[in-house]
Design a protein around this nucleic acid. Structure first.
Lengths: 226, 226
DNA sequence: CGTCTACTACCAGAATCTTCATCTCATGCT
DNA sequence: AGCATGAGATGAAGATTCTGGTAGTAGACG
């Protein structure tokens, strides 16, 4: 399951690569349109993430050229300003688009949607309902119940919980969480994570002082009970 | 459940494909009449959306040729100007027609109607009457009653309500709603959705300040009470 | 031309997020 | 065991973002 990430911001590319690889995808990278087209012609990708603004050949043109020989799904990464990017993207053959800045959770959701649509390898984590212990989470409804009781979560709380529940046992540092849930360009304070974890525990745990699900790995970060 | 979309406006095709795939249909595309006929001869489609103006072979001729070997339902996509398209289309074997520009809800409704008629896989959401709580919605009459009292809705209000009632609990972002209800080429402001939601609430809810049916998912969008 | 619908801009209040100070507790050392 | 240290938990306030409402304009339609 290979994904190609194309953007001239190397930092962004590295961040996305890191996160997607952690999710079990294989990730190639390119920094300009020419290289992107070449890579696509030489490899078989499940999805391509393509920035609009690129050196040499821009994203739209690259998309058009790719379409000449491949039907691989393309997700365009667009800047917020340009309202029409969406349309233009579709016109040139893109399958979806996402506006920067985005957070990794959202990007992953789009990738899952694309893979589901293209029928590629229905992975366990492409499900929109996740149940672990007494916690049930539905990403379409963005709803959560604990032992059958509905719980209202805020956006950040929900995104945190979804990430944890998709990867139980895996420990995330605060830096990881900031970059995944808050976005790659979050300048935020590291302690902010603590506060949201606390709020999440208050809503999800029976006794937030002795958490049962969202546990602390001392000196490292947080994780969801295996 | 495969659908073939044929139009030379790639933008339009992509938009339709995107939306129909999100609804769980499989979508093939073609950009001229020749390719369309070839695809139909090689695949089994539940419905074909066929533009009138096409390169190589126009829509009518393509429709006629398809009819020589297949009874697959055809919905013609016609430009607004030509009033007689309808008749001509039927004459050449089309089953329905829809004038551009249309919005996705309307297109989906036509597709559902065709599928219902052709007896293909009677899906739950192909019903034309939906009742949830005190709200009854009839897509054929485009009428709505709340606790038995008829309510007059505008086009946008009705489309919003229909979408919500077909997918209770599912949360839609404003972007989702814009692209689904407003259409593939909507340049619209995101706040417009809020205003229509408010109007809808004023007509459907007992107290629109404490909505019972059309609820807000803070930071995400709107959804219909489960 | 008048009426109805749709769209946009703007504002105030509410919900959420962030920051910071303080408290508590796990850890490692003596 | 007792203590120092630093990491995590907690509480509260300020900043920010989001929503719902008002209002006014544009556009469609008869």
């Amino acid at each position: 399951m290979k994904i190609l990430v194309v953007d001239d911001e190397k930092l962004l590319v590295k961040g996305i690569k890191f996160n997607l690889e952690n999710d079990g995808y294989e990730v190639d990278t390119a920094y300009d349109g020419e290289e992107a087209v070449r890579l696509v012609s030489e490899n078989k990708y499940a999805v391509i993430l393509l920035d609009l603004m690129l050196p040499k050949i821009d994203g739209l043109e690259a998309c058009r050229r790719i379409r000449e020989f491949s039907n691989v799904p393309v997700i365009m990464l667009t800047a917020k300003t340009e309202d029409n990017d969406k349309l233009i993207g579709f016109e040139y053959g893109a399958d979806d688009y996402i506006t920067k800045p985005f957070n990794i959770m959202e990007l992953k959701a789009r990738i899952r949607a694309i893979l589901r649509r293209s029928g590629t390898a229905e992975r366990q984590d492409s499900e929109h309902r996740i149940v672990r212990g007494g916690i049930e989470l539905d990403t379409l409804e963005r709803s959560v119940t604990v032992n059958g009781v509905p719980v209202m979560l805020t956006v950040k709380e929900f995104d945190l919980l979804e990430l944890f529940m998709r990867n139980p046992g895996r420990v995330y540092s605060r830096e990881n969480l900031l970059s995944i849930v808050w976005g790659y360009d979050s300048p935020g304070d590291i302690r902010t994570v603590d506060v949201h974890i606390r709020h999440l525990r208050e809503k999800v745990e029976a006794r937030s002082a002795q958490p049962e699900y969202i546990l602390t790995k001392w000196g490292i970060g947080y994780y969801f009970k295996q």
